[in-house]
Design a protein around this nucleic acid. Structure first.
Lengths: 154, 154
DNA sequence: TATAGGATTGACGTAAACGTAAAAGGTGCG
DNA sequence: CGCACCTTTTACGTTTACGTCAATCCTATA
């Protein structure tokens, strides 16, 4: 039983109580696997979004932590704040139907969707204005570069 | 000669050396006129974006300041940072053709346009992912609400 | 004169999500 | 043994565009 996959040439290959196929990963592996920094993982933990096990002081991440991290990253991708993500995750109850959690998620999602659409509209607007300005500037440059042609062409 | 328009019932109507049709506006008027706060106007000045005249310590804004503010607000609308706006404005020379200024503006605009389009793509992506998640969540809620129908319907 | 309305200059606070040292401890390998 | 590499905690720094007091001043008006 290795820490990760058999081919992983990790520097530190501690023996870890790996019972029943549990795979523990240390922070470095975890970070690489999900493209985040160590700081980020510690930050998320500090904010109560992750709760890795410990071997002494060393963090050990399990499948559960990976699932949670995936959710966090998805949440961030769609624009939720970490607070929102935490709020939703905190409602998770492995013994129930999680109806409340789902409803909250849906509610927040609707609001976020609205925000995203608003942002999109703003950006479209900005693109429009910027394009206009660029045309104007280009025209001004033309007039300055070939002033003799300007009126002659008209 | 009044400070602003004849109908403006401003509280303070100081006599101001209004020569040659120059219209001076104090910070309060200026703020209202352009929908910004006093803090914002002072901040822009602090950053070197505005340079109102002074009557003692009181700021007096002229047409020139209004034009500059309009540019600032347009810049912010299309997503430029104040630093960018300042950089572009600082190149303005009333005696020249401002070719350098226009070129810089165009250059920055092209980059900003690219950024905006990238952002738009990200938002579209986010909207897609979020919509997907919402469908999933809705489905989960349906299964939890009417569990008897779930398999019966299949 | 009292009061209300502007105006001024500081200067600290805010939001979000980490970045970036700093100082220290553990571990395997040659 | 010593070095390289990984990890830990603590804690201040970063970014941007202002918000929000606070203390003070000036002026017009009732």
């Amino acid at each position: 039983m290795k820490l990760v996959s058999p081919g992983e040439a990790a520097a530190n290959t501690n023996d870890i109580p790996a019972e029943a196929g549990e795979e523990f990963v240390r922070i470095g592996e975890m970070a690489k696997k999900y493209g985040v920094t160590l700081r980020t993982l510690r930050f998320y933990e500090d904010k109560g979004l992750l709760n890795p096990h410990r071997d002494g002081s060393t963090r050990l991440y399990t499948r559960r932590d990976k699932a949670r991290l995936k959710l966090i990253l998805l949440g961030r991708k769609v624009g939720f704040s970490l607070r929102d993500v935490k709020q939703m995750m905190d409602l998770y109850d492995p013994t129930g139907t999680n109806t409340k959690q789902l409803r909250l998620a849906l509610d927040k999602s609707e609001k976020q969707l609205a925000r995203l659409q608003k942002q999109r509209a703003l950006i479209d607007d900005a693109i429009g204005e910027l394009s206009n300005s660029m045309s104007v500037v280009r025209q001004m440059l033309v007039e300055r570069t070939a002033p003799a042609q300007a009126s002659a062409a008209g």
